[in-house]
Structures are given as structure tokens and as C-alpha cells.
Design a binder for these strands. Structure first.
Lengths: 189, 189
DNA sequence: ACCTGAACACCGTTCAAGT
DNA sequence: ACCTGAACACCGTTCAAGT
């Protein structure tokens, strides 16, 4: 007897589609991945994707959800490390999906569903960062400080910098997050 | 007798095309502007654009060049104002072309010509900012500081924030650019 | 319910043909 | 040299038709 509750197979098939899309989106980018290529990767007819997921923006959102869930789960393992290291880790961790960062921003205003995802993403990640920064920066400046950090991370993803330069940006950002009395003194000379 | 030197008319026509493209790109965005729509705006056949400009990425680059030249010219008029005001001015000034910022980042790696433009843009604008920051920040941190500022400006353009929030980010950024002895004391309480 | 072949309305670009 | 109509190879999406 089938132990699968109704909808189980459908869910599985949908996951396969999204996994295929994730592979191609991360590898080749959203624009460079046609629905035909996605269907080929998943071994279905081109229009079958629409039966399981919806249009191309819905596929993108499903992929982003999967990447975000995985990223947040991974983040838990380093959430107790110093802020400077957390920042470095986040940038390197997100580098694999840097094309998608630019894609999301380019598609804002063209897909209401993606707009909503983007808003929720920022609310979620900025909430985490804000909590982490509490006590480390002036309370009145915390919102602006959070935004600067998020924008810097996004910038590090959408621009090709050397690893050393990425680290320098992270360190410079984090330099103002320690309490003044803990700051290293200026090097003499 | 024609006082136009050879190539003059061609240049004019090309400028008309680029002006039409600029109008549509700024208004509707790059992706939403088809070559057919651009040709219609300029009152030529769809394929005539290729005779004067090149492919769609070349049109984009021509538009970006025009916008950048105008922006730099406008900047000269406020270049002597305090850094905090320069930053605010830059963000508000660039807001009109915010869709194009995301477009450039999304198309990086897909057009070699656009890659080159993007590199030159950053070299130019970061050079200006670096010169302005000289003496206002620790010399060893100036590169990272410049990048943080540029990324923050780009972030303010690709995200919908209220004007008050945009100002808060600019002010928070600029807060570390004044020499420590000039910084306002913490508000009492 | 699930999947598809065929079609639709586009898209950027090319090219032979005109002037 | 300049401009075009027509075509090309795509694209995302829809839909009637199958099982």
C-alpha cells in the first residue's frame, strides 16, 4: 500500500525541478538559464515546469528560499563567533550565489512576488544583524549601521574584489562595532 | 555648400538614438525597453539602431556615458561642500537612474564592453572619493572606507528607502570621516 | 491529475535588397 | 553610405489534446 500521503509525489517532483533550477541559476545565472534548459536538466517537457512551479519568477523565488534556508542553517554554526568573523564568513558563504543577488535587484518592480521575497529577506537578515549589533553600536545609529553593513555585503558580492580586499572591507566595517574602550589604539607614528 | 564636416550628421543621428534610449532606459528600465520600442521612439526601423550604435549593450554603454558625463559636470558645482552633503547630494542625484545600477550589475560577465565600462566607472568615482577622503580617515583604511561608501550609495539606489532613512545612512557613513577632535560629543543622557 | 506537442506573441540580431 | 523588410533563432508562456 502507498504510505505516501496525497501530494507527496508532487512535492518530490517539484523539489527535483527546483534543485535543477538551483544548479543552473547558480552556475549560469538566471537570465542565461532558459526554461527549455531547465526542463532539459530536469528531464521533462519545457512546459511541464509550469505545472509544478509556476512562471520563471516563481522558480527563482523557490530557489532563493532553498538557498536562504540552507544559509541560515549554516549560519547557526558560527553565530557565536566574533562579529568580524561572522561578517567574513557571510561574504564568503554568499559568494557562490552572487549572480542571483544582482538578478533580484534587477527584477525588483517587475515581479510582485519577488518584491515581497526581497522585502522579507531584508527584514529577516537585518533583524538578525540588528540583534547582533545591539550594545556594540550607538542605539540611535543602529538602523543606519545595519543598512551600511548589508549594503557592503551586497557590494562585495556584486563586485569582483580579491579576497584580501574583501577582508579589508569586512574588518573596516567591524572596526566600529566594538565598544570604544575595546578599540585598539592608533598605531604610533 | 555643406559646412558639416564628414561624419557630423552621423554623429547627430547617433546622439538622437542615444537620447531616445536614455529616455526609455531611465523611464522603463533596460529589460523593459525593446529595440523595437527604442526604434519607434527614434522614428526609425528596428534594425537601423544597429547601423548607428551597435547591439543593445552598446546602446546601454552610450547611455551610461552620457549620464556619467552629466553627473560629473553637476558634481563640480558641489565639490567644495562638506563630505556629508556631497554624499547626500550624490544619492539623490543618482536616484533617477537607479534601475540602471541594478542592470549594470546584472549584466556583468555577459558583455565584455559593459565589464570594461563598469571597471572604468568605479576607478573614476572611487578616485574622486579617495581624494576627497584624504586626511579625513586613517590612511591605511582609505581603500576599504571608499568601497564601503560606494557600496552604500549603490545599496541606497537599489533599495526603496524613505528619504529620511537615506539621509540617516549618509550621515552615519560620514560620521567617521571627520577628524576625531571635530566630532560632536555624545548627547548627554 | 499529470504531461505534452504545438502554437503564440514576443525578443535581439542579421542580411540581402534597395536608394 | 544609409536604411529597410523580411527572416532567423531564440524566448517565456498558454492551451487544447492526450493519458
Amino acid at each position: 500500500m502507498p504510505s505516501t500521503r496525497p501530494g507527496r509525489d508532487r512535492e518530490e517532483k517539484r523539489t527535483e525541478l527546483v534543485d535543477a533550477a538551483r544548479r543552473l541559476f547558480v552556475q549560469d545565472g538566471y537570465d542565461a538559464t532558459s526554461m527549455a534548459a531547465l526542463a532539459r536538466e530536469a528531464r521533462v517537457a519545457a512546459n511541464t515546469v509550469y505545472w509544478y512551479v509556476g512562471d520563471k519568477d516563481d522558480v527563482l523565488i523557490a530557489v532563493l528560499d532553498a538557498l536562504l534556508a540552507e544559509g541560515l542553517a549554516d549560519y547557526a554554526s558560527i553565530a557565536d563567533r566574533p562579529l568580524r568573523e561572522q561578517l567574513r564568513w557571510t561574504v564568503e558563504r554568499l559568494r557562490g550565489m552572487r549572480r542571483l543577488v544582482a538578478t533580484v535587484h534587477a527584477r525588483i518592480g517587475r515581479s510582485a512576488a519577488l518584491d515581497a521575497w526581497h522585502d522579507a529577506f531584508h527584514a529577516s537578515t537585518e533583524g538578525i544583524l540588528r540583534a547582533a549589533l545591539e550594545g556594540a553600536v550607538d542605539p540611535g545609529a543602529i538602523d543606519a549601521e545595519v543598512r551600511i553593513a548589508v549594503f557592503a555585503v551586497e557590494g562585495l558580492l556584486t563586485h569582483e574584489l580579491a579576497e584580501q580586499e574583501r577582508r579589508a572591507v569586512c574588518d573596516q566595517l567591524a572596526a566600529r562595532w566594538v565598544a570604544p574602550e575595546d578599540r585598539p589604539g592608533r598605531p604610533p607614528g
